[in-house]
Design a protein around this nucleic acid. Structure first.
Lengths: 219, 219
DNA sequence: GGTTGCTTTTAAGGTTGTTTTAAATTGAAT
DNA sequence: ATTCAATTTAAAACAACCTTAAAAGCAACC
């Protein structure tokens, strides 16, 4: 099992990590909220243990952003004893469990096991770029539906953010080998995609590189 | 939401039940371990709240028997403060959460919501989605009977709420490998399912994603 | 064994959304 | 200014999907 532990009290963190390692639980440690969020957004962990009181970004804020981006990694919140409001906020916001500080590491381990023993949440294949979330299983971009061809093109763009894709590559990948009006297919669909991006009010856009192709950029 | 509450302290139970009702949580109450076990073995509940200290049969024993019989209804254990051993035993035994007594009902409600919001556990006998309750053992959807194929398809849809299932996946799962009119089988049965959903006046519906498949959504 | 009632398969026609086509418009580069 | 690439649009063509109903299959029952 691999977890992320976001905790600013260094000595506490070291002690807990040491005990978790004994139980064969691999731990990545983040010392503040920003670092924590960065790591939490990657789908690398079986669970995340989040302290609430943190420098830069609170645990509740991290959790909120995670759930907004549909990151479904199970989360255990930590906070000082008896702050019932925090507990409730955390649980309402999509935390999976709660543990009062100070806690016994044995209990944390038991709770981690209980969480991870669950069947894994169906992880939709999702590609992210800045404020965009492209869900491949549903073929939706931040919720709006894309058609087959739109999705085919957009997948290529979002997979190589910042670097260009040529029309020929797009044709080959999305259409196979065709004839005649070919290049215009791509142009038409790029136009459709731009329209959808605009309707999403995304700051990402598709940039044309004349005589070369297109790339996804963030303004 | 419908829960079972196993608790021998009558006045505490009445107070808690009263507050839960206000939150539209339906509660069945069992006053001792035997009665609790009987009810717990029925797949009627979204969650079970289990006191540990009980007459006749302890909460831990009930939990153990439930899990042995593969009843996967989520369980929240209750026990007097600081009995860390009990907590750990409970969680190891497959409890999904733990709450120390005395507790605030607000926290119990938050934890129930957190638990029930989860995707349904693997082989639960009843799968829920919004206003739909699909009972696998007698193959009824909110009471109306589904045929073999209907149920096979609907099970796939309700197990991945919000994310799409392809026709190929459906064919493979429900029919095995066949020939010729294959895809139309799925279309025909999707049509039947839609008719039944409509007759139930459910706000859930099956959405087509062209060239991809189907998903269950809530309007 | 044949009748009844149900589920499943087959088939065909209608509907809808996506893709293609084509032509007019805009914009960049020399 | 001229040219060629890129954009946009709308209509036509197409393919996917929906629906329905009849035929076939299957099991339970007398």
């Amino acid at each position: 099992m691999r977890i992320l532990y976001v905790e600013d009290e260094k000595y506490l963190a070291e002690a807990v990590i040491h005990l978790l390692k004994k139980e064969k639980i691999a731990v990545d440690w983040a010392a503040d909220g920003e670092e924590g969020l960065d790591l939490a957004l990657k789908p690398n962990y079986d669970a995340i243990v989040l302290d609430i009181m943190l420098p830069k970004l609170s645990g509740l804020e991290i959790l909120k952003i995670m759930r907004e981006r549909c990151i479904k990694t199970p989360v255990i919140m930590l906070s000082a004893l008896n702050e019932v409001e925090d507990k409730i906020n955390g649980l309402e916001m999509g935390a999976d469990d709660y543990l009062a500080k100070p806690f016994k590491t044995a209990e944390l381990i038991a709770r981690l096991n209980a969480l991870v023993r669950r069947p894994p949440l169906m992880d939709a294949k999702v590609l992210n770029f800045e404020d965009l979330k492209f869900d491949l299983t549903n073929r939706t971009l931040n919720g709006v539906e894309l058609t087959d061809k739109e999705a085919g093109i957009f997948e290529m763009l979002i997979k190589t953010p910042g670097s260009a894709v040529t029309k020929e590559q797009i044709l080959a990948h999305v259409w196979g080998n065709e004839s005649e009006f070919e290049e215009n297919y791509v142009e038409v669909y790029i136009s459709y995609l731009r329209k959808k991006l605009k309707s999403l009010k995304s700051r990402a856009e598709i940039k044309t590189i004349r005589n070369l192709g297109y790339k996804l950029v963030y303004v």
